[in-house]
Design a protein around this nucleic acid. Sequence first.
RNA 1: GUGGAUGUAGCUUAGUUGGUUAAAGCGCCAGAUUGUGGCUCUGGAGACCGUGGGUUCGAGUCCCAUCUUCCACCCCA
Length: 430
Amino acid sequence: MELLTQAPRGTQDVLPQEAAAWQAVERVMRSEAELHGFGEVRTPVFEHTELFQRGVGDTTDIVQKEMYTFLDKGGRSVTLRPEGTAGAARAMLEHGVFNGGLPVKFYYFTSCYRYEKAQKGRLREFHQFGVELYGSGDPLSDAEVILLGHSLFERFGVKGVRLEINSIGCPACRAKYFETLKAYFGSHREELCGTCLDRLERNPMRILDCKNESCGKVAAEAPKMIDFLCGDCRAHFDHVKALLDAAGVAYTVNPSIVRGLDYYTRTVFEFLAEIDGKELAVCAGGRYDGLVEELGGQHTPALGFGLGMERLLLLLQAQGVELPGVEPCEVFLGYLGGAAKAAAFRLCTELWKSGVHAMCDVNGRGLKAQMKYADKLGAAYSLVLGDDELEQGKAELKNMKTGEKKKISLGDRFLDDYLTVVTEQEDLSF
RNA sequence: GUGGAUGUAGCUUAGUUGGUUAAAGCGCCAGAUUGUGGCUCUGGAGACCGUGGGUUCGAGUCCCAUCUUCCACCCCA
């Protein structure tokens, strides 16, 4: 029974009050993205499983153990998207977008699905805002994307968001580095913890940020990717840093940043923030020059980031950032008696047509209850209709805050009268 | 996936060593005010005590399983 009234693990409902906050955040993201020439793209929730195996990478945790994969009735293996980039890239290829002018810029709002053990800020269904820039390998694009992320946090007014960047090189220089790193950690096997011994095989870079004390010591002395960057990668990274410096954006180079997706090359970055005593990546991304090729397209350098909506909302809430709530009712129409009920509904309809947020009682309850409800709705004005008012063709429009009442016509001049009173009183409040 | 906590009305909680109809505050509904909200007073509705088993004459209290949430790990947005 309880299955019917309990959302599945790791999922969340968003109720109107909170949805208003989401919308406010989304508005800022849309406007900032569009300011930079990014256009919205919407792709399917599920894709062929192979897309993620190829795009995200077969060896990653995401693909190996976190995907919601199933066979559809036609026997095809499909997967709920665990992230937004692979699907976006697939769509670009499918529609030949890369054959037009480059670069092309897209943003998206998507739900993502990962089979994880849920915790605060870590859900099985979560939402990302992401941007994607295809067709430029220039450091300027790296800077633009990072700056875009940075300016979002500024616009939200959140404090204490740290930017960390790193370069993980191109396949050529990274391969050389991996060899060296493996050899180094291999010669310190005795000092590594169990999970790190495992990492040694799968992804030695992960050992770099192990919290185990002994591993940390070994990691501190380990060779750094930055020292292994080839000439081009090094120049690229230096240029990106110079552009960030020029833009006055603070960052730290963290040589141990490793992303969990195989497609990254060169620049990687994370915006970190503390939420309830826990440091979480709120926004992270980087460059993935090999992705389009991996999916069967021509070599197309690209980069982007994903920003966790739930984590951002958590952060805004933790910092007490005020977001608009549900738009309150402007005027509430109450009534006494059947004739007045019909009249109230008619006037309400008229207000709706003129774009006024009005509400009319529909439960036929006592006037006192109607007024209480109006108060709860936060109505700025109320108008009560009864037999007397219908006879006179006039009713009192009450300002709920001041208690002031003004007679207005219920006839042809109703809207004019209403708007006149409302504008007058709005002016007074200044 | 591993380890550890948690779960009582919509919300926050009380519930004594297992013992008659599970309690309070807030919220909700109604009345006092027979045509006007916010304050006050009065009354009312609302809980199969997360779910399913078990022990017992008797379980919200004990045992097992399961689910949710939270914490650490893993990982990540």
